[in-house]
């Protein structure tokens, strides 16, 4: 029996008249790599923004089984989400470009270090506890840098890294927050095939060796079909399929959403129904 880590129930998000996400429910499990796929504009990133507190959902309940037990994500301010063990990356990479690679990873451990520095007071006088905590933070950063093959770059400004390495750094930074669930928004975008392969290996390793669940939005189907255990498919904000990889792969609705439809079927349903009634339908 798998343990759930995230339960999304009846999530809807409206922007004025636009319904970006419509009554979405799914469960992500701790032992899984869960992929959310769907055509452009299907509402995938909106789901992420609701999960990570950047948007307040119009309706719905988002239960996350975090470090301190279950917590309702929709009630949290964005900056309070990470401390429960949910980390994310962004579709367009958001690094602290002027700061060094190592500093990026240290900033990710801000809250722990802030406590260790006695909210700056102990840190100002150079207390030993703080220096120790900082050394530990550097060790954690070093661990992930080594895993990502970025150790050589530690003291470079983050903005000076090539694109693929910036992606890796952003994932490393999210990992430095010590997450239980890592949410990646199109991590393979802009990567070459080799880098995509490495990314897949990394995600599998996170799941198997570090016990970190992964929730991923991705357009690269080769990656999704290779590593995802569980796939949720969105189309126009609605869930059209949800289940293990093999089943979703063969789902006719999914194939239709991805491969497109014949011209007749693209007509609005009412019109199509009228046409059918008039005897022109198949």
């Amino acid at each position: 029996m798998k343990t759930p880590i995230l339960e999304v129930e009846h999530l809807s998000m409206r922007f004025g008249g636009l319904i970006a996400v419509d009554d979405l429910s799914f469960t992500a499990f701790k032992e899984d790599i869960t992929a959310i796929i769907g055509p452009n504009g299907a509402g995938k990133t909106t789901v992420f923004n609701c999960l990570t507190g950047f948007y307040r959902p119009t309706t719905g309940q988002l239960t996350f089984y975090g470090h301190f037990g279950p917590v309702l994500l929709e009630r949290l301010d964005g900056f309070r989400v990470p401390r429960h063990g949910l980390a994310r990356t962004f579709q367009n990479i958001r690094l602290f470009g002027g700061m060094s690679v190592l500093e990026n990873l240290i900033v990710a451990q801000h809250n722990a270090l802030m406590r260790a520095s006695g909210y700056t007071l102990l840190g100002l006088v150079g207390a030993r506890g703080y220096r120790q905590a900082e050394a530990e933070a550097v060790e954690r950063a070093r661990f992930w840098l080594e895993r990502m093959g970025l150790l050589e770059r530690a003291d470079w400004p983050a903005a000076s890294l090539p694109y693929g390495e910036q992606r890796k750094l952003e994932i490393a930074r999210a990992l430095c927050t010590g997450p239980k669930l890592l949410c990646l928004d199109e991590p393979a975008a802009g990567l070459n095939p080799r880098e995509t392969l490495e990314l897949g290996e990394l995600l599998v390793e996170l799941r198997d060796r570090h016990g970190i669940a992964v929730l991923l939005i991705e357009h690269d189907m080769s990656l999704v079909m290779r590593i995802a255990d569980h796939i949720v498919v969105l189309d126009y904000g609605r869930k059209i399929a949800d289940g293990p990889r093999e089943r979703v792969k063969r789902d006719p609705l999914v194939i239709k959403a991805y491969l497109g439809e014949t011209e007749e079927e693209e007509l609005p349903p009412e019109v199509a129904a009228d046409l059918a009634a008039a005897g022109r339908g198949a």
């Binding site: 990570t52 950047f54 964005g78 900056f79 309070r80 990470p82 602290f96 801000h110 809250n111 927050t177």
Partner: peptide, 12 residues
């Protein structure tokens, strides 16, 4: 200064 949104995503 570099990126406020990324800061929020890191719990700052």
């Amino acid at each position: 200064r570099e990126d406020e949104i990324a800061c929020k995503a890191l719990g700052i």
